[in-house]
C-alpha cells in the first residue's frame, strides 16, 4: 500500500480527528480541494462546508466545519477550525433550527457594523450546514 497522508483536524476545544488517510477533501475559499500525500506546501482558508476523509476510494468520515484554515506541509495536513463536528451528529431538523435562529438574529440587528457582519456569517454557516446535511 502506498504511503499515507498524516491528517489532523483540530478545534480550539479538542482534537476531532487525527491519523493516516489516503485523501482529504476540504472546502477551500476558492473552491473544494483534495489533498493527497506529498501535496506541495499550502496554506488555505476554508469556507463553511464538509471535510471528507478518504480511505482508499471510499469516504471514511465526514465533518462539518464552520470555517477556519488548513496547512499542508511535508509533515502532513493540519486543518484548524473554529467549530466543527462529525456530520452524522446533526439531524436535518437541528440544522434547520440553527438556520432559523441565525436568520432571526440577523433580522434583529438593524444597523450595520461589525455585529451585522458576524450575524451574516452565522447565517452563511447555518446555510452551509443545511446543505451539507441534505446532501
Amino acid at each position: 500500500m502506498a504511503e499515507q497522508l498524516k491528517f489532523e483536524l483540530v478545534s480550539p476545544e479538542q482534537r476531532l480527528a487525527s491519523g493516516d488517510c489516503d485523501m482529504v477533501v476540504m472546502p477551500g475559499e476558492d473552491g473544494d480541494l483534495g489533498v493527497l500525500v506529498e501535496h506541495s506546501p499550502l496554506v488555505t482558508l476554508l469556507r463553511p462546508g464538509v471535510v471528507s476523509i478518504y480511505q482508499g476510494d471510499r469516504v471514511d468520515r465526514r465533518f462539518f466545519v464552520a470555517g477556519g484554515f488548513a496547512e499542508v506541509s511535508e509533515e502532513g495536513c493540519t486543518v484548524l477550525i473554529e467549530e466543527g463536528f462529525p456530520l452524522e451528529d446533526v439531524t436535518e431538523a437541528e440544522a434547520g433550527q440553527r438556520l432559523d435562529t441565525a436568520k432571526r438574529d440577523f433580522a434583529d440587528i438593524g444597523d450595520d457594523g461589525p455585529a451585522r457582519d458576524r450575524a451574516a456569517r452565522a447565517v452563511a454557516i447555518a446555510e452551509a450546514l443545511v446543505d451539507a446535511v441534505a446532501a
Binding site: P12, G28, E29, D30, S40, P41, L42, V43, T44, L45, G68, F69, S73, E82
Partner: peptide
C-alpha cells in the same frame, strides 16, 4: 517561500488575526 497561499497572504492574515485573538 515554499508555501502556496490561497487566496493570498493578506486575506489569510486578515482572517487569521481575529481568530488568533480568540484562541
Amino acid at each position: 517561500a515554499l508555501y502556496t497561499f490561497e487566496p493570498d497572504e493578506e486575506t489569510i492574515l486578515e482572517r487569521l488575526l481575529p481568530m488568533n485573538l480568540a484562541v
